[in-house]
Simulated scan of single mutants.
Amino acid sequence: MTTSTPDAARLYELLPGAYAWVQPDGTWWINNTGVVAAGDGVLVIDTCATAARTERFLRAARAATGDVPIRLAVNTHQHGDHTYGNSLLPATTVLIGHERMREGLRVDPVIDGCPPFWQPVPDWGPVTRRLPDVTTSAGLTVHVGDRRVELMHPGGPAHTTGDLIAWLPEQRLLYSGDLVFAGLTPLVFMGSVRGALAAVDWLAGLGPAVLVPGHGPVLTGADIERVLDEHRRYYSLVLAVAEEGLAGNLSPLEAAGRADLGEFAGWADAERLVLNLHRAYADHAGGDVDLISAFTDATAWLGRPMHTAV
């Protein structure tokens, strides 16, 4: 059985100077991060949800890179599991994000106190809201020593409206953020189901040799296409359930209650089906998701608060 305690996390060197910090088991609030080091600088890709988990990550990064300064950091999107630890970065670090990601974190109330939709209710520890210093609407290229890192937006809403990936084209190394969840249920309630589906093909078109997902194990070789195909099938299922529910005048919760998850029934965080249906319904109506209603329905479908281990 996979443990999800903080000390289960490990820093993996994917190629010289490029690392993935993988936190099992990748469920709610437990994410992956990245480190790219070259010359006299380091780029950090995302932080963690809590102060304790972020401090553990940064200690491992410093040990691996010889305490080379963290000159740059990027947030792949606004969600707290990837951003709440930003304030633990050095004050001199230049933080980069999509302009919509910055605004989303600016108004995010959850960093001030998590609502009781999860059990146990997460405690972030001594973190403060830290927003990007530099924003982009489409993408930009940063250089870490002689390493070229392309920070790219998928072109529209996907996991959120402000996603960025970090792509090292010469090494074919991809840090996908939450455009990819490896082996557990994807989440798109703040983005777009169809946009997330399109983003899968966009990522596949890059031809990565190594893919670091936002959650779950690092992927290489045939496992990359396998996981991307799983995303295609899952998003197609969500769209089909939404279409049937809308045709039958069912609520997202009612539609989820009738849905057969099939091959995805064993994935962790299956209640995200409800959240994803709320997004599909909102997109059909040309509106936005009522987050409180969506999470209330998700816990109703599950029959209890959602589990987390942060």
Rank of each mutant, 00 (worst) to 15 (best):
H82V: 04
H79D: 09
M101W: 07
T83L: 06
A38Y: 06
E99G: 03
L43C: 09
T27P: 14
R71N: 01
R53L: 08
H82Y: 14
R53C: 08
W29E: 04
A63W: 08
W28R: 15
R59Q: 13
A61Q: 02
T93Q: 13
Q78I: 13
H77G: 08
A91E: 12
I45H: 00
L58H: 02
V94E: 14
P24A: 11
A60N: 01
T54Q: 06
T27R: 11
E103C: 04
N31C: 14
I70K: 08
H77D: 12
T65R: 00
A51K: 12
D67L: 05
E55M: 03
V94M: 09
A61N: 01
A91L: 04
G80C: 10
T27I: 12
I96F: 05
R100W: 07
V42W: 05
Y84P: 13
G80I: 13
G66C: 10
I96E: 08
A60D: 04
N86A: 10
A37V: 09
R100F: 08
D25T: 10
N31M: 15
M101E: 12
N86P: 13
C48W: 06
G26T: 15
L58C: 10
A49K: 05
L43R: 14
F57T: 09
G66Q: 02
I70P: 06
A73M: 10
T65K: 00
H82T: 03
R71S: 10
A61E: 00
V74Y: 01
D25F: 04
T83G: 02
V44T: 09
H79M: 09
D40P: 06
T92S: 14
P90R: 03
W28F: 15
G80T: 06
L105F: 02
G26V: 15
A51S: 11
P90H: 07
D67F: 07
G80S: 05
T47E: 01
I70V: 12
L105K: 10
A52I: 14
G39L: 05
H82Q: 13
R71M: 06
L58D: 01
W29P: 02
I70S: 03
R100S: 08
N86G: 05
G34W: 08
F57D: 03
G97D: 00
L95G: 12
G80V: 07
T65P: 00
T47Y: 00
L43F: 10
R53H: 09
D81T: 14
A38D: 09
N31F: 14
V35M: 01
W29V: 03
A73D: 05
S87C: 13
V36T: 11
I45Q: 01
G34V: 11
L89E: 00
T33Q: 04
T50L: 06
W28P: 15
V42I: 09
E99D: 09
I45G: 02
G34Q: 04
R102E: 06
A52M: 07
